[in-house]
Nucleic acid binder design. Structure first.
Length: 423
RNA sequence: GGAGAGAUGUCCGAGUGGUUUAAGGAGCACGCCUGGAAAGUGUGUAUACUUCAAAAGGGUAUCGCGGGUUCGAAUCCCGCUCUCUCCGCCA
């Protein structure tokens, strides 16, 4: 969420940036500032009452030691009055803080001024495009038929054992999954990312800190008996590593990579173009997360963007990069690049990665800070990106590389698969 | 799942109702000493909110978390979380 000092000191800029996301409820800003004034005033009054009570308690202690307990009676009465007062003030203070918080979570992150204005995916800006568009043989098949033809995945079996959107991968299909995971992890480690393997269940505090709660609760699978949630992305546990932390400035940027299963209920989003691997409830993803200095977080965003582009180059997939417009960006992002690979048989661009800078929007809620050279403590910037999500990569690999002899595996992946062709 | 023990600052660790304004030690930072270092020595060393034009200084809260008792709680009471030991189960 946004910080109150930012809203207070840069209100015009804040409004201008929010308008890029087509946000219009600017009255929330003034409401928050008014409540914050009340919070300060209330706290001051409460603190004064507490200070007087503390002072009286010391006096009572002294009197008792001197054997003058009787003289303490009026002081005790005064403390009782103060206690009533601090009860009322304290409750109001908590109430005001709750109100401020409830309004803050209704305001999205402020987009970077470079973010194009717009409402839908059609307004996204194509910033680069590379790779050779494949020429497919006649009777080219979409990936769901290829999965079936070469016995790489079994959706029916998934339906039987779990439900729709939970396929089994089998044989070379399973091996291809494992190869891609290892390939992505090795590439990230070679690029300086520190590998972690996170839990795939998180507690409420973690889900709240990265913003899945309270807004996106319906998107997560929950384990209510233990008050836990299945992660929709490794971003959640990995970013939460840094919750309530003060890191050293010299440690920045902190580059972390994690592979995990991801679980998404995708409530209400089933419809067109979700066949096969295009949309699943459980999928695999390698995620990169960075904690960066505010001075160079956008340089880090470009570096992450390049890391992802290199993966796609090595996989020899045609792709383009979009800078998302305000209307298509996520609530929490300040700037997002989406990567889409061309899935030749479906004749579709498939989103395989989303790389974002959140500035302080996440770290404010996380309480993720660093101490600068002068000893001042300030919020760090967070960034993350998929590098990469597997199912749509598999879809594009299968469709684009199909030949009459079988499906060719890109060279970079062959050491990981142990085979050059699927037939 | 059962029984017991525990959680104090960067770390170790003392503290069972009032100069604890959290002892002491270690670490770290800076200074002195030194040709340089070690040793020695001195000073400093949490976070959040708030007050103040700013700095300095001050106030409040925080001893796992949340309540309660009391004029006063790290200390007493209740609930929760987590850790350790033993038992049970187990890849």
């Amino acid at each position: 969420m946004l910080t109150i000092p930012y809203i207070r000191e840069h209100k015009e800029e804040c409004i201008n940036r929010l308008s890029i996301k087509n946000f219009t409820r600017f009255e929330l800003l003034d409401e928050i500032l008014a409540l914050d004034d009340e919070r300060r005033k209330t706290q001051q009054e409460n603190d004064e009452a507490l200070a007087e009570a503390n002072s009286i308690a010391r006096q009572v202690g002294d009197l008792c030691k001197q054997g003058k307990a009787a003289e303490a009676a009026p002081l005790k009465a005064r403390v009782a009055e103060l206690k009533e007062l601090t009860k009322v003030k304290g409750e109001r203070l908590e109430e005001v803080k709750r109100l401020i918080n409830s309004k803050l979570v209704e305001i999205p992150n402020t987009p970077n001024l470079l973010v194009p204005r717009g409402r839908t995916a059609a307004d996204n800006l194509v910033v680069s495009e590379e790779g050779k568009m494949p020429e497919l043989p006649k009777n080219a098949l979409p990936h769901w038929e290829l999965l079936n033809k070469y016995q790489l995945a079994d959706f029916e079996l998934g339906n039987k054992v779990t439900g729709a959107g939970f396929p089994f991968y089998k044989g070379k299909g399973a091996r291809l999954q494992r190869a891609l995971i290892n390939f992505f992890l090795d590439e990230a480690v070679a690029d300086g990312y520190f590998e972690v393997q996170p839990p795939i269940l998180v507690n409420e505090a973690s889900a709240y800190a990265t913003g899945q709660l309270p807004d996106k609760e319906a998107q997560m699978y929950a384990v209510p008996l233990d008050k836990m949630y299945m992660i929709p992305t490794a971003e959640v546990p990995v970013t939460n590593i840094f919750r309530d932390q003060i890191v050293q400035e010299s440690q920045l940027p902190i580059k972390t990579v994690a592979y995990s299963n991801c679980f998404r209920r995708e409530a209400g989003s089933w419809g067109k173009n979700v066949r096969g691997l295009n949309r699943l409830h459980q999928f695999d993803k390698v995620e990169i997360v960075e904690i960066a200095h505010p001075d160079n977080s956008y340089e880090r965003l470009e570096a992450m963007k390049e890391h992802v582009a290199n993966l796609l180059r090595k996989l020899e997939l045609p792709f383009h990069v979009l800078r998302l417009c305000g209307g298509d960006m996520s609530w929490t992002s300040a700037m997002t690049y989406d990567y889409e690979v061309w899935s030749a048989a479906q004749q579709l661009w498939l989103e395989v990665s989303s790389v974002s800078c959140f500035e302080t929007f996440q770290s404010n809620r996380l309480k993720l800070r660093f101490k600068d050279k002068d000893g001042n403590i300030q919020l760090a910037h967070t960034l993350n990106g998929s590098a990469l999500a597997l199912p749509r990569i598999v879809a594009a690999l299968l469709e684009n590389n199909q030949t009459e002899d079988g499906i060719l595996i890109p060279k970079a992946l062959q050491p990981y698969t142990g085979f050059e062709i699927i037939k």
